[in-house]
Amino acid sequence: MRIAETVTFGGSGLDRAAEVRDHAAHLATEPDAQIILLWRGKPLLAGGALVRVGPLHPVLKDATADKVLLGRDGDSLAFAADLSQWQPDNLDDQALNTFLDPTEQRHPAFPDDHVFKELRGVMTMLSPRDAELAATARGIFNWHRSHRFCAACGVQSCFAMGGWQRNCEACDAHHFPRTDPVVIMLITQGNAVLVGRSHGWPQGMYSLLAGFVEPGETLEAAVRREVFEESGITVGEVSYLASQPWPFPSSLMFGCAGKATSRDITIDPQEIEDARWVTREEMADVFAGQHPDILPARKGAIAHFLLENWLADRLD
Score class of each variant (00 low, 15 high):
Lys61Ala: 15
Thr136Phe: 05
Gln203Ser: 09
Arg138Cys: 08
Leu91Ile: 11
Arg16Trp: 02
Pro245Asp: 09
Asp112Lys: 04
Val286Ile: 14
Asp101Asn: 15
Pro202Gln: 03
His26Tyr: 07
Cys256Thr: 08
Leu45Ile: 12
Glu19Leu: 09
Trp277Gly: 02
Pro88Ala: 03
Gln85Thr: 14
Arg145His: 11
Leu119Asp: 03
His144Gln: 10
Ala173Leu: 13
Ile265Tyr: 04
Pro31Ala: 10
Gln270Trp: 10
Leu209Tyr: 01
Val155Met: 11
Lys67Ile: 01
Trp39Asp: 06
Gly162Trp: 03
Trp39Ala: 05
Ala288Thr: 02
Ala24Asn: 07
Ser251Glu: 14
Glu220Trp: 03
Leu91Gln: 09
Cys256Gln: 07
Gly74Glu: 00
Leu295Ala: 15
Gly139Ile: 03
Gly54Tyr: 01
Ile267Asp: 10
Ala63Ile: 06
Ser239Trp: 13
Asp112Thr: 08
Arg40Ser: 10
Phe9Gln: 02
Arg263Ala: 15
Ala288Val: 09
Arg280Gln: 12
Met125Ile: 05
Asp264Leu: 11
Arg197Val: 11
Trp310Asn: 05
Ile184Leu: 07
Ser262Arg: 06
Val227Glu: 07
Ala109Arg: 04
Trp143Gln: 05
Met125Arg: 13
Lys259Asp: 11
Leu208Val: 02
Phe141His: 11
Val7Cys: 08
His144Arg: 07
Gly204Arg: 07
Glu217Gln: 15
Leu126Tyr: 12
Leu306Ala: 09
Lys67Met: 15
Glu226Met: 13
Leu219Gln: 01
Asn191Asp: 15
Ala4Met: 05
Gly139Cys: 14
Ala284Gln: 13
Leu306Glu: 01
Ala221Tyr: 05
Ala297Tyr: 09
Gly232Cys: 14
Cys150Ile: 12
Gln290Thr: 14
